[in-house]
């Protein structure tokens, strides 16, 4: 049993290393094609995030919301539910958290901050929960509905940020800044890394506990494996269409709220773009395991920070990261790669 488990861990990690290796090779290839100073670009792409404390701390800070969105997606995928609305859920969570902070300019930092985060969480949870509810009630495809709802929500949030909530004091497309007492404590100056890092680690632990050591988690995973079988086993399967979706949305909303209180201190237009999609990538690399989400998120933050450093110091554009990301998407789900390794491993015996 232990041996079997170890061997599956081995296969997964070898597969993952191959996947990430290929992705990096493609990144290097792209840089050679696109950049006129490839050596410089490659240096900043791969080493850039480690060159000083500021970059390094910010890289880790980028990973924090990705831990939340990754966990959200992992819960949904483990239950065989697709949540493609992460973008809208993060963004609306951020907006609601900002609005709560702005409307309570003099409240106690801890209470008001908690209230803001919880409101953001609820916003995300409701948005995603809706898709789960439609699925449960009428069988509406949650994959498409969550994407479309999120598509509309993103534009509506854009309207609020640039319209009624726009800060008249500056020409940037942002809301006003939230009050000082809501800012999360910085732990690695001069970077933006803050105590939300610990929230992220804590959440990963909690989700791990929920999924593997509770009754709910068990039933959720069973529904994910085989919904019909679970129905015959007496599990209330319709609950587990809504619950994973709502939890997933809650974690996305929280990711948005944390980014505002910890990093941005104001809701900037389109600041969260990519967080939802990256969450999917993070969950996939982690093979939907809650504890695997943390290293996967750091890896993704590294990719992001590398692309940003390369853009700043060289002549390539940031979207190279999107191409590398898509390669990782392609390869990480390609089951054939993993079964090939399995096959090779058995062959000599």
């Amino acid at each position: 049993m232990v041996r079997k488990k170890l061997s599956s861990v081995f296969i997964n990690s070898v597969g993952l290393i191959i996947t990430l290796g290929i992705a990096f090779l493609i990144a290097i290839f792209l840089i050679f094609v696109l950049s006129s100073t490839p050596a410089r670009t490659i240096y900043y792409f791969f080493i850039g995030p480690f060159t000083n404390k500021y970059y390094f701390g910010n890289m880790l800070n980028t990973a924090v919301p990705l831990v939340f969105t990754g966990l959200g997606i992992a819960i949904a995928f483990k239950s065989s539910i697709f949540n493609l609305g992460g973008e809208g859920q993060v963004y609306s969570g951020a907006l609601i958290a900002t609005v709560v902070c702005l409307s309570l300019p003099n409240a106690n930092g801890y209470l008001g901050g908690a209230l803001a985060l919880i409101s953001g969480l609820i916003a995300g949870s409701v948005l995603a929960g809706l898709s789960g509810f439609f699925k449960m009630k009428w069988g509406t495809n949650e994959l498409i509905s969550s994407f479309l709802i999120s598509g509309a929500v993103v534009l509506i949030v854009n309207y609020f940020i640039t319209g009624p909530l726009d800060d008249p004091g500056n020409s940037l497309l942002t809301t006003c800044a939230i009050a000082e007492q809501y800012h999360l404590l910085k732990i690695f100056p001069p970077s933006k890394l803050n105590i939300s890092t610990f929230f992220g680690i804590l959440s990963a632990g909690l989700v791990f506990f929920l999924m593997f050591y509770t009754h709910w988690g068990y039933e959720m995973r069973m529904c994910g494996l085989n919904r019909e079988f679970s129905r015959y086993g007496g599990i209330n399967v319709s609950t587990y269409l809504v619950m994973p979706m709502a939890l997933s949305g809650a974690l996305h909303g929280l990711a948005g709220g944390i980014s505002i209180l910890g990093t941005y201190h104001m809701c900037v237009k389109e600041f969260s773009f990519g967080m939802g999609w990256n969450g999917i990538a993070v969950a996939l690399i982690a093979k939907n395991h809650p504890l695997g989400v943390i290293p996967a998120a750091i890896f993704f933050a590294y990719l992001d920070a590398g692309a940003k450093a390369a853009m700043l110091h060289s002549d390539v554009t940031f979207e190279i990261a999107a191409i590398v990301q898509s390669i990782i998407f392609y390869l990480v789900t390609a089951q054939a790669i993993y079964s090939f390794i399995k096959f090779r491993k058995r062959a000599p015996a």
């Binding site: 996939l284 390669i327 998407f329």
Partner: peptide
């Protein structure tokens, strides 16, 4: 042929298109 999950590879295609 590589038996990837079609939703994920579909997402990858959308991302690839946007990035490329």
């Amino acid at each position: 042929y590589l038996k990837a999950n079609i939703f994920i590879s579909g997402l990858a295609t959308n991302l690839l298109a946007a990035g490329l």
